[in-house]
Design a protein around this nucleic acid. Sequence first.
DNA 1: TTCCATATCGGAATCATTCCAGTTTGATTA
DNA 2: TAATCAAACTGGAATGATTCCGATATGGAA
Lengths: 144, 144
Amino acid sequence: MEIKNKEDLIGQLKEKGLKITPQRAAIIDALVKNRYEHPGATMIFTEARKKAKHVSLSTVYATLKEFSENGLIKQLEFDRMENRYDVDLSDHINLICKRCGTIIDCTIPAPLEPRDIARKSGFIVTDTRMEFHGYCNDCLKRPG
Amino acid sequence: MEIKNKEDLIGQLKEKGLKITPQRAAIIDALVKNRYEHPGATMIFTEARKKAKHVSLSTVYATLKEFSENGLIKQLEFDRMENRYDVDLSDHINLICKRCGTIIDCTIPAPLEPRDIARKSGFIVTDTRMEFHGYCNDCLKRPG
DNA sequence: TTCCATATCGGAATCATTCCAGTTTGATTA
DNA sequence: TAATCAAACTGGAATGATTCCGATATGGAA
């Protein structure tokens, strides 16, 4: 499941027991069509409106959250910038431009060497962010 | 410069031509003293107040931003959670608990294998975040 | 001591995101 | 095909971390 299309995502929705609505179809369209832009909620809202006239921003947010939580897409979180969404769930590095916000997928495997990245893509790495999210030992022991 | 203390940071301030104020000294104290907690602005504010009675939250934010931009500390950015600050600028992985927000430093080198991390630390990785921030090719060509 | 660029201040503004309470609807079942 | 209801949608209000603002204070060079 490297390259997901609309049908794949709708299939996943059904599997999870989630409903397929015109709004969701339009949002999926927007996500797939603009996959390389790693669109944010605003762009998805604008794009989705072209297909389904009646989509609200609240719905776009709720839907993107729902999709993320169900593993259909990945949410790339930021601080003073809109979150962005990625349909490509495979392991890859995101090259994020501090100036223009462009996000480029980088599939160079294993040894994460900023120098290699730079040489191969022309991207200059000033700051690396490598985080693993999950559950710490203490929380795993604690019930709840 | 693996383990930074108060004097190191004040030295860096001088080097950069930044002023040393009671507020900044108190903020540096808070940063160093709570380094393993990776404190957020609120905790730094509370801690700094214990030393310097007159520090405002605005100043804390401005100062942390200033310090981050000048490379004295590293800002760990989040979406719906306070940003956190790290005095340790060496390459390391941050293990972030999704439930309690604890941030644990992980100094395992090279091949970033979630399984290894889990085995060595008892941390269960559900989500990896590896991002390189910098400048893309297009932006480098463009003037400004 | 003077001086001024830099810091600090509190309060208002920002803005992406979430919450809420009321309405609509997909899709299951009879 | 209609009835049913949990799930989804809606717009507007609320949230909350962070930034902005214009005024005031001050570190440290001369």
